[in-house]
């Protein structure tokens, strides 16, 4: 292992630490709830290890019964995890240089958190397998460990709402979203996604909000994108709405204007 590899793995571990700590109460909560729904701690461990998708795991607990409705469980899982298709597609060019094995196994432990951090890092420098492994492996071990502990400890934990543990996931994601606020059209994407997801949640119910919100947010970005895009001008939502300005090659090529439109707090 070269010094570079080690440094990359360390950087991965350092970046994943906050989500890792935030996942501790969430994992304990999942394990405790799962046992309450009739799962054995060994089954909790197996599910966390093989599925490794918190949102989907929480959602199927609502469906859990004896006998287990396998079709409904699989369908709900697919719907909630459909976002992985988008996430994987977005990550693909950034991990294209990874060895095949790392790519195919590594993407198997892609989660919202390690993916968001990888995307953030890819904006600054190329992604390396060591960075990905340094993030993803501890995060996976942590989830399996704490969901299992939650299952074993069960009711000893008391009410997780008492310490706001049920909100930790939301707070973590708000932090991740804030990390992307400089991305082009960020405000419009967040607004469209949040509105559509909240409406879908109220109108239809749980698993559908992810697909609805993601679709609306992406649609907003596409609608506001100039046909022949200059990213700097496109980054300003006010100007992006003006087809003359967005399509004007003189202004688009003018670094002074581009620089001005990009300047943000």
């Amino acid at each position: 292992m070269t010094a570079d590899t080690l440094a990359e793995a360390r950087a991965g571990l350092r970046d994943i630490l906050p989500p890792l700590l935030a996942a501790v109460p969430i994992g304990l909560l999942f394990g405790a709830l799962a046992v309450g729904r009739g799962l054995h701690p060994a089954e909790v461990a197996l599910m966390s290890a093989l599925v490794f998708a918190g949102g989907a795991q929480f959602a199927v607990l609502d469906l859990w019964a004896a006998p287990v409705p396998i079709g409904a469980v699989a369908f709900s899982t697919g719907l909630i995890n459909a976002r992985h298709l988008l996430m994987g597609a977005s990550l693909a060019p950034k991990i294209a240089g990874f060895p095949r094995l790392v790519r195919f196994v590594g993407v198997g432990v892609m989660a919202d958190e390690n993916w968001a951090l990888a995307e953030r890092r890819a904006r600054e420098r190329p992604l390396t397998p060591a960075y990905w492994i340094g993030m993803a492996v501890p995060f996976w071990v942590n989830w399996v460990l704490f969901t299992t502990l939650g299952a074993l400890a069960g009711s000893l934990l008391g009410d997780p709402k008492r310490i706001g543990a049920d909100f930790a996931f939301t707070a973590l994601f708000i932090g991740l979203v804030a990390g992307f606020r400089a991305a082009p059209r960020a405000g419009a994407v967040i607004a469209a996604s949040a509105a559509a997801a909240a409406l879908a949640h109220l109108a239809v119910g749980s698993p559908w909000h992810v697909v609805s919100g993601a679709t609306a947010g992406i649609a907003a970005a596409v609608l506001l994108a100039p046909a022949a895009g200059n990213p700097a001008i496109a980054g300003n939502p006010a100007q992006a709405g003006d087809p003359v300005q967005a399509g004007n090659p003189v202004q688009a090529g003018n670094p002074a204007i581009a620089g001005k439109t990009e300047a943000r707090p």
């Binding site: 949102g55 976002r83 988008l86 597609a89 996931f169 939301t170 996604s193 919100g213 609306a216």
Partner: peptide, 18 residues
């Protein structure tokens, strides 16, 4: 533009109900 928007759109959608 669609791909650039994916991280924000997905992360926001997951937590919007809460």
């Amino acid at each position: 533009a669609a791909f650039d928007a994916i991280p924000l759109a997905v992360l926001t959608a997951v937590i919007a109900p809460m």
